[in-house]
């Protein structure tokens, strides 16, 4: 009796003990091949699913469009705020013609409008955070495509590209002179509950140290 051999070449006649061991090794090898084949099928399916999702659209169309729309919001609110400020400054100038009591009422209202106009700064920073998040998604989609070597041509049986795209650089540009750890401090406006109020900040400033 000859022994099992993955290569198909008959091996030397085994002893009764070694025959059992080689059979076990061979069966184990077959299972490994099956598992690798299943893994390859899984990756191929994932790759096809990714292509079917049209990830290039996310990178090339959806995210740039969304970012452009958000930029337009920032520009529009900035322009509108400037208009409001122009009008309020004109109204404020009328105070000299009013009685002291009316001037006080006018100035109070004008001050509140100035305070309210700060919304443009806050919303601008929030929108910038959203745009940064979109850029991160864009980068991750790109990295995922690179990892899976996804190319629509694969569906036609073409080989994967040799030069997969490199991940995009980080979106945050470190400010000149900032320490590396300072970047982690740039979080922008926080949601109510996550943010410290002015009273909390005052207490922290008064604290020891």
């Amino acid at each position: 009796m000859t022994g099992f051999s993955p290569t198909g070449v008959p091996g030397p006649a085994p002893t009764p003990d070694s025959s059992t061991g080689r059979a076990s090794d061979f069966l184990g090898g077959l299972r490994l091949v099956d598992e690798i084949r299943a893994l390859a099928d899984y990756i191929d399916t994932a790759r096809r699913d990714l292509v079917a999702l049209r990830p290039q659209d996310i990178q090339e169309r959806f995210i740039p469009t969304a970012a452009d729309e958000l930029d337009a919001i920032v520009q529009a609110t900035e322009s509108a705020t400037e208009d409001i400020m122009d009008c309020v400054e004109a109204l404020e100038g009328l105070g000299e013609r009013l009685s002291p009591a009316d001037t006080e009422i006018l100035n109070g209202a004008v001050t509140r409008i100035y305070e309210a106009c700060a919304f443009q700064d806050i919303t601008g920073q929030r929108i910038t955070k959203v745009v940064r998040t979109l850029k991160n998604i864009e980068e991750r989609v790109g990295a995922m495509l690179a990892t899976f070597s996804v190319n629509p041509a694969l569906l036609a049986g073409a080989p994967p590209p040799e030069d997969t795209p490199a991940p995009l650089p980080p979106t945050h540009v470190a400010a000149v002179g900032d320490r590396p750890e300072d970047q982690a401090l740039l979080n922008g406006p926080q949601h109510t509950g996550a943010a410290m109020g002015q009273d909390d900040i005052d207490a922290l400033l008064r604290g020891p140290g």
Partner: peptide, 13 residues
């Protein structure tokens, strides 16, 4: 708008 405690501490320091 930076309102996290680590911001306030960094500024204080």
């Amino acid at each position: 708008a930076e309102s996290k405690s680590e911001n306030v501490i960094a500024a204080k320091e």
